[in-house]
Design a protein around this nucleic acid. Structure first.
Lengths: 228, 228
DNA sequence: GAGTGGTCTAGACCACGAG
DNA sequence: TCGTGGTCTAGACCACTCT
């Protein structure tokens, strides 16, 4: 564990445990450096992390303060590389609707930047959050890059499996817009037909820049994102 | 201009001007340090910037590479503090539908964390991107924090005006989901009734953590966001 | 093992804010 | 003017990748 990350975690725990409210002033940079026994640069980096994850905000010449968002009934939009479900894997369950290995159709091939007909896995899943249908996901994995995928992995986290196999997941492009669900989609998600929903398309890259996954998902959840 | 920022800009220009494609290898960290005459830390920070803005990706032990997203017909979702319109202010025009100063209703007061009845400005605008209706925005500004707002500012960028008045804008919380437009909204946006749309609610804070703006916007655009 | 990215330090100096 | 956050440097040392 990186030093600045460890410190960031400790500070965050401190804020959470003591339930400090928005605007509460924290010790000064110099004091924090001494408290944690690190250099200024490292402490700054820890604070930068916390600022980027919206736990604190810093005001030059004045101090470091606790930041809190108002609404709690929304899910985080971007958590980390693993996609939307950064820290609540436990709350997710899956129902696999399709699992097959087939040659890529033109549109899929284009998104994966492969020749048409290259072998891909297609996985269609309905995901439940806390037992409620939440997320309809169709994803395509490049067979050459992910190796053999046993059908059972689709029941759990595919990304965790791939990481365990030594794949290094790097970053992703996300495209999204708003659509009407068709009848089949709405039924699966337990919504009336013609409900509005978010559609998200993801293109995932390995850490060396090669595309290994294209997926599209539909949901009707509420999200939040914080920005600086 | 910060040194690491200036360097990041130069490198980005270099990549754009030469139209380097995804995966192109850049000079090594040490070479870049020498080329720009800065310390390792500073160069790293410049590269971190570029990595966060999805211009490059770094692979330890291997090198620094150009990153490109595939689709160009999407708008950026998060650009910077100024909200959605980071770098394309010029393409935006406004039609002001309402401009008034009034006591805050309970729901608005709650979002602004003010007592009910506090004075706020309410501004309803239709925004055009490249001349096409694009974005329906209703926003509420805290009168005590923004001072006197002449009605004419609503025709341009309100945030630019506020900044010019010395207000320091800090960060924001963004909440979004998908909804059906009602008849009036759809008409304004030049869409059929019952079209699906994205709804975005924003809560903007000053750099000292006080809320000064709450707004909700509706649109049917396509967005992208990249993540690491 | 050579080369490349990544973390950390100690200390100099700058920029902003509050009294 | 003083305390606080913010930037930059030079150099030590670590971790990964490629051959």
């Amino acid at each position: 564990m990186l030093k600045h990350q460890a410190i960031a975690n400790k500070l965050k725990s401190y804020i959470d445990d003591n339930q400090l409210s928005h605007g509460t002033k924290l010790p000064s940079l110099t004091e924090l450096m001494e408290m944690y026994g690190v250099s200024k640069n490292t402490m700054m980096q820890a604070l930068k992390n916390l600022e980027n994850s919206h736990v604190v905000y810093q005001v030059q010449g004045s101090g470091i303060f606790v930041r809190r968002r108002q609404r709690q009934d929304y899910d985080p939009l971007f958590q980390n590389t693993a996609g939307f479900f950064g820290n609540f894997h436990e709350r997710i369950t899956n129902r696999v609707l399709a699992f097959e290995k087939l040659p890529a159709e033109p549109e899929i091939a284009k998104n994966l930047q492969l020749p048409v007909g290259s072998l891909v896995y297609r996985i269609l899943r309905l995901q439940y959050l806390d037992g409620k249908p939440f997320w309809l996901e169709e994803s395509f994995y490049v067979a050459d890059l992910v190796g053999h995928l046993p059908a059972t992995v689709a029941e759990g986290s595919i990304f965790s499996y791939l990481r365990a196999q030594g794949l290094k997941i790097g970053f992703s492009d996300k495209y999204f817009d708003s659509v009407l669900l068709d009848e089949a989609q709405a039924k699966l998600l337990d919504l009336p037909p013609n409900s509005p929903a978010l559609r998200l398309e993801d293109i995932y890259y390995l850490n060396d820049g090669r595309i290994f996954d294209y997926s599209r998902t539909y949901c009707q959840a509420k999200f939040y994102a914080q920005s600086n």
